[in-house]
């Protein structure tokens, strides 16, 4: 089982690396789906099958479909890739890479320094998750529902097309 965890983790990292470097948005999106599926496998190996399913259904399914819709609505032609190539200057990448490298180094250092332990080979079943959600985390669930409602209203408001709006005006 451990080997599956490491394989999936490697796939997730490689796929994510490809996401970061792609110039075409649709390509990047497909690699991200691969990455998410790999992470779902990781979840499964870590004893969280319910979450793994959600990762596939909601993340790799619903949310990524949203991205696909938007990219389709924007109707970016082949020149979009060229624009993206023009933006991908090495010096633009240098600063963020350095910063993130330092951050990653610090994180790795801190993780390796902490007391070790292994994951338990125990499965957190959907039933347990549901009991926890509607038990101690009930307030969190309510807040999440409120957040989703706000997201719904916000997306509707921002997404509607106002025909008489001047470019650059307020929403």
């Amino acid at each position: 089982m451990n080997i599956i965890f490491y394989l999936a983790a490697a796939v997730a990292i490689v796929a994510t690396l490809l996401v970061v470097t792609r110039l075409n948005a649709v390509h990047a999106l497909l690699y991200l789906i691969v990455s998410l599926l790999a992470v779902a496998v990781v979840f499964y190996t870590l004893g969280a099958p319910f979450v793994a399913a959600l990762e596939v259904i909601i993340y790799a399914g619903a949310i990524m479909v949203l991205f696909v819709f938007v990219i389709m609505m924007l109707n970016l032609g082949p020149q979009a890739t060229e624009t993206e190539r023009g933006w991908a200057e090495p010096e633009l990448w240098f600063g963020p890479a350095l910063l993130c490298g330092v951050l990653l180094g610090e994180v790795i250092y801190l993780i390796l320094r902490m007391p070790t332990g292994t994951t338990l080979a125990r499965v957190g079943t959907p039933e347990q998750v549901g009991v926890a959600l509607y038990g101690p985390y009930l307030l969190g669930v309510e807040l999440a529902s409120l957040l989703l409602l706000a997201g719904l209203v916000g997306a509707y408001h921002l997404g509607r097309r106002a025909p008489h709006e001047e470019p650059g005006g307020g929403v």
């Binding site: 600063g95 963020p96 993130c100 951050l103 610090e106 250092y109 801190l110």
Partner: peptide
């Protein structure tokens, strides 16, 4: 975002 990251780097550096 870069400023945020720099702040995170500094905070983690304190921990390190």
């Amino acid at each position: 975002a870069g400023a945020l990251v720099a702040g995170a780097v500094l905070l983690l550096a304190l921990l390190v």
